Simulated assay, not measured.
Amino acid sequence: MPNGQEEAEYKQLYDAFLVLDVEGTCEHGSSFDYPNEIIEFPVCLMKWKDDKDRRELEVVDEFRSFVKPSWRPTLTKFCTELTGINQAQVDNAPSFTQVLESVFHFLVKHGLLDEKSRNPLSRFSWCSDGPYDVRDFVVKQCFISKIEIPTWLKGDVLDVNKMVTDWYISQNYQGKKMRAMLGRHPHRPSLNINNQLRVLGLPGFQGRNHSGIDDARNIARIVSECARRRMHLQPNTHIDPNRRWSWMGSYGQILLQN
Rank of each mutant, 00 (worst) to 15 (best):
P2C: 08
Q5T: 09
E9D: 10
K11W: 12
Q12T: 03
A16K: 11
F17S: 04
L20S: 09
V22I: 11
V22K: 04
V22F: 14
T25S: 13
E27I: 10
S31K: 12
I39R: 11
V43E: 10
C44K: 14
C44P: 00
L45T: 08
L45F: 05
K47W: 03
W48P: 07
R54C: 03
E62G: 00
S65D: 08
S65W: 07
S70E: 13
S70R: 14
W71L: 06
P73C: 02
P73Y: 09
F78I: 05
G84H: 09
N86K: 14
Q87T: 02
Q87E: 10
Q89M: 14
D91H: 09
N92G: 02
P94W: 11
S95G: 12
F96R: 12
T97I: 08
T97C: 07
Q98F: 01
S102W: 01
G111I: 02
G111F: 05
E115M: 02
K116N: 14
L121G: 03
L121D: 02
S125G: 05
D129R: 06
P131F: 04
F137S: 08
F137G: 00
V139R: 10
I147H: 01
E148Q: 15
W152V: 01
L153C: 12
L153D: 01
K154T: 12
G155K: 11
V157G: 04
V160R: 04
N161Y: 10
N161W: 04
K162V: 03
K162R: 14
K162L: 13
V164T: 14
T165P: 06
K176M: 10
M178A: 13
M181R: 08
L182Y: 03
R184I: 00
P186Q: 11
H187V: 02
H187R: 15
Q196G: 09
L197K: 09
V199F: 13
V199G: 10
L200K: 06
G201I: 07
G201R: 12
P203G: 06
F205T: 03
G207E: 13
G212I: 01
D214H: 13
N218V: 02
N218T: 08
I219P: 06
I219V: 15
I219R: 10
A220T: 09
I222A: 09
S224G: 08
S224Y: 01
E225W: 02
R229G: 03
R230Y: 07
R230L: 06
T237N: 12
H238D: 10
P241Q: 05
P241W: 03
N242D: 13
R243V: 01
R244H: 05
L255E: 11
